[in-house]
C-alpha cells in the first residue's frame, strides 16, 4: 500500500541518485589516481565537467538526423526511469509495482539501443564500430542477467525489487547462501560489462580502436554530451545500488520516518564507497581484455549464474 509520503521519497531518492552519481564517478577516478601514485582531480571534478558541458555549444554533423539529437534525451529519460524503480533508499515504494527487475534490465537496453543508433547516425566508422561492439556485449550479457534475476526471484518469490529486498532482510541467512553469492559474482561482472569498466572497456582511453562506449559518443558535444555522460554515471550508481541493496539490504528503510531514511542514506553512502574502492582496486589490478576475449569473460559470468540457479534449486 503506498504510504502518504511514498511518492515524495521516490522522487527524492531519484534526485539524490542524480546528484550523487557524478560524485561517485569522481571518487572512483580519485581513488584510481591515488593508486597510480598521483594526486588526481578532486572528487567533485565531474560536477565541474557537467557545468562546463552545459554551457558549451553543440556541434552536429550534417549527416545526422533527428535521432542523433533525440538520443541523449531518450538515454537520460530511460536511466532516470530506472532510478525511479531501483530501491535506493527505501522499500516498498509506490513505483515498485510499476516495474520489476526485468523492466529495469530492458529499460537500460532501451537506452543502449538508442545510443547505438546514434553512433551509426553521423555515418562515421568509429560510431559504427562502437555500436557494433556495444550491442554485442549487451546481447551477450543478457542471459547472465536473466539467470541472476531468476536466482534472486527463486528465493524471493517475486521479481519485484521491493520484494527481493524485503525477503533478504527477513531471512538474513539467505544473503550468504551460495546461490546469492554466485549471483553476486555474476552480476558484478555484468556491472563491469554494462558500464564499460575495465576489463571490458577502458573509460579513460583515447585510442578509438580500443573503445566500446566512448566510440559511440565521439560525435557528441555540449549539453548532449553532458546528458549522455550523466546517464552513464547514473547507471554506475544504480548498478552499485542494486548490488548493494539487493544482496546486503540492511540499512534500507522499511518505514518512512526521517530517522530510517537518514540511516538508509548513511548505509547507502557506505555501500557506494566500499564498492567504489573495490572497483578502483580491481581496475588498477587488471588490464583491458581484447575484444574477442570479452565473450570468454561473459561466459564465465554466465557459468556463475548457472551455478547460482542450480544451487538454488538443489537447496530448496
Amino acid at each position: 500500500m503506498p504510504l502518504p509520503t511514498g511518492y515524495t521519497v521516490a522522487i527524492a531518492q531519484t534526485a539524490l541518485a542524480l546528484l550523487l552519481a557524478p560524485g561517485l564517478v569522481g571518487l572512483i577516478r580519485w581513488l584510481k589516481a591515488r593508486l597510480q601514485n598521483r594526486r588526481g582531480a578532486p572528487v567533485w571534478q565531474p560536477y565541474l565537467e557537467l557545468r562546463k558541458l552545459f554551457a558549451k555549444e553543440v556541434v552536429v554533423s550534417s549527416n545526422a538526423s533527428w535521432l542523433f539529437r533525440a538520443a541523449p534525451f531518450v538515454v537520460f529519460a530511460s536511466t532516470v526511469a530506472v532510478a525511479l524503480l531501483v530501491p535506493v533508499l527505501a522499500v516498498p515504494l509506490p513505483f515498485d509495482s510499476v516495474g520489476d527487475l526485468l523492466v529495469v534490465v530492458y529499460l537500460l537496453l532501451l537506452g543502449t539501443f538508442f545510443l547505438a543508433l546514434a553512433g551509426l547516425d553521423p555515418g562515421s566508422a568509429f560510431g559504427g564500430m562502437g555500436s557494433s561492439r556495444e550491442m554485442t556485449v549487451a546481447a551477450l550479457s543478457e542471459p547472465t542477467v536473466a539467470l541472476a534475476i531468476f536466482a534472486l526471484a527463486l528465493g524471493a518469490g517475486s521479481t519485484n525489487l521491493g520484494q527481493i529486498v524485503a525477503r533478504t532482510m527477513a531471512d538474513p541467512a539467505a544473503a550468504v547462501s551460495p546461490g546469492y553469492l554466485l549471483a553476486f559474482g555474476a552480476l558484478f561482472v555484468v556491472t563491469l560489462a554494462e558500464n564499460g569498466r575495465l576489463p571490458v572497456d577502458n573509460p579513460a582511453t583515447h585510442l578509438e580502436l580500443t573503445m566500446i562506449h566512448e566510440a559511440m559518443i565521439l560525435e557528441y558535444s555540449g549539453r548532449y554530451l553532458a546528458l549522455i555522460e550523466w546517464s552513464a554515471w547514473l547507471k554506475v550508481l544504480l548498478f552499485f545500488s542494486l548490488l548493494g541493496n539487493l544482496f546486503v539490504p540492511w540499512g534500507v528503510a522499511t518505514v518512512l520516518t526521517w530517522a530510517a531514511l537518514g540511516w538508509a542514506l548513511a548505509t547507502l553512502l557506505a555501500k557506494l564507497v566500499v564498492l567504489a574502492v573495490a572497483l578502483a582496486v580491481f581496475e588498477t589490478r587488471v588490464a583491458k581484455l581484447r575484444l574477442f576475449r570479452v565473450p570468454e569473460l561473459l561466459a564465465v559470468s554466465f557459468v556463475l549464474a548457472v551455478l547460482a540457479i542450480t544451487v538454488s534449486f538443489l537447496v530448496r
Binding site: 582531480a41 565541474l48 557528441y220
Partner: peptide, 18 residues
C-alpha cells in the same frame, strides 16, 4: 604521475567535439 595534469582538472580527450 609526476606532472599530473589531472590535478588541475585537465583531461585529454579523443575527439575534438569533447
Amino acid at each position: 604521475p609526476v606532472y599530473d595534469s589531472e590535478r588541475f582538472g585537465f583531461h585529454f580527450v579523443a575527439s575534438p567535439r569533447h
